[in-house]
Every structure is written in C-alpha cells, then in structure tokens.
C-alpha cells in the first residue's frame, strides 16, 4: 500500500510548507525537527515544535505545543473543524489525543515507523474505539521531512562526545521511495497509487525517524 491520493493537493501543500518551516526552525535550535500547524477555516491557529528540551518532559511533542497555543484563545471544540499538518506522522500518544479532541483530519509528511499512531506502527486513528475515527493523508513533502530528520541526526552525532563512525556523520541524500504498511483512511476507499508516482516495494525503514524520535 502506498500513500493515497490527496484531493486538492496543492492547497494542502501550502500548509505543509508552513509545517516544514517550523521543523527547520526546530533544527536550527537543536530540537528534533518535527513541525506542525493546525488550520481552521483556512487559517493557521496553532504552530508547534518539539518542547522536550525546554520542559524536560518527554511528552511535550510539537502537536501538544501547538494545541496549547490554540487553546489560549479557542475552546477545544474548535478542533472538530480543524486539520493538522505535521511533518512526521503523529506518534501513538498524539494520535490518541487528537482523536479524543475530535480532530477533523491529519496530513503528514513521512511515516514514523518507530512510534507512529496513524499507520506507521499502530492505527490509533481508525481502530475501533469510543471516539470517532479521523482520516489521515500521508506523503506531503515526505522527502523534505525525512531530510530534516537526517540532518538532525548527523548534527547530533557530530556533537556527541564520542562521535559515531564517520559513515553516520555523512548526510545521505538518497531517499527511498514511498511506502507505507497500513495507512488506512476510515470509510475511504483503498488508497491507490498516486498519479505520476510509481508504486515501489516497501523499503521505508526510516531508522532516521526512529533515532531522531529516540532523542525526544
């Protein structure tokens, strides 16, 4: 299975671009380069990057930081008409939180094959549960999202007191083709191969995602 087609892709890319910008900013301040924006009625109402270093709290993910910004001004019910754009698939924790808050839809860049809760490891967004499921769409600027994580990993390794072997400090630029084990969109049709994107075997073992997330 590959990422399904995203209707109106360009529109969504516009917001994912903003999420990527957040991730770039995180990278420049040594935080895990995961960025997100929440969009309500075509307007960004919350932005977030990882806040673990500042809070010494391993649960302070980008999504939650953005939610704090939203709820300073809006009731939580606004999320039912709000979409999330996040560079890396939400983790199991965030996926569950988003479902409990009633998020409308989630768009993400690359899979999180270490902690992903929207298809990467588990399918918390669509499993049978007391809350309504939400649709997820993956693959928006996927290559850029992965490259940011790789840059971060190389940068962290170079700084480590006992640097890892040189091969880990080299920035690999080749990115394996799209794949995803089981990103299911509730109620939707089986995701099909995107136009213009060849279906290729499952190869995405984003150890990078894993390693980067490990540091959170």
């Amino acid at each position: 299975m590959v990422f399904g087609p995203i209707p109106d892709r360009e529109y969504h890319e516009g917001f994912m671009r903003k999420a990527i910008e957040m991730a770039e900013m995180a990278l420049s301040s040594d935080e895990t380069p995961v960025g997100c924006v929440f969009v309500h009625a075509g307007e960004v109402i919350g932005r977030g990057i990882n806040g673990t270093n500042a809070s010494l709290n391993g649960t302070r993910h980008a999504e939650f930081v953005a939610l704090a910004e939203i709820m300073a001004e809006h009731p939580s019910s606004i999320l039912r008409e709000t979409d999330l754009y996040v560079t890396v698939e939400p983790c199991i924790m965030c996926a569950s939180a988003l479902r409990q808050y009633g998020i409308r839809a989630v768009y993400f860049g690359c899979l999180n094959d270490r902690f992903g809760g929207c298809g990467g490891v588990m399918t918390v967004h669509s499993d049978p549960a007391v809350d309504a499921p939400y649709p997820v769409y993956g693959g928006l600027f996927r290559e850029e999202a992965i490259m940011l994580l790789r840059k971060f990993y190389v940068q962290e390794n170079a700084k480590a007191p006992d640097p890892k072997p040189k091969k880990n400090r080299e920035l690999k630029t080749e990115i394996l083709p799209i794949s995803t084990p089981n990103v299911a969109t509730p109620g939707g049709s089986t995701p099909t191969i995107e136009k213009g994107r060849p279906a290729l075997p499952i190869l995405e073992k984003a150890a990078l995602v894993a390693k980067a997330q490990l540091k959170q």
């Binding site: 709290n57 391993g58 649960t59 983790c91 199991i92 924790m93 965030c94 996926a95 569950s96 939180a97 409990q100 902690f115 809760g117 918390v124 959170q216």
Partner: peptide, 12 residues
C-alpha cells in the same frame, strides 16, 4: 488511555 499509556512509554 492510549494517550497516557504512550506518554508513560515516552517517559521511560
């Protein structure tokens, strides 16, 4: 819940 359970995992 799942959110809190995974928060416990993230928190080691």
């Amino acid at each position: 819940c799942m959110m809190c359970s995974m928060a416990l995992v993230h928190s080691r």
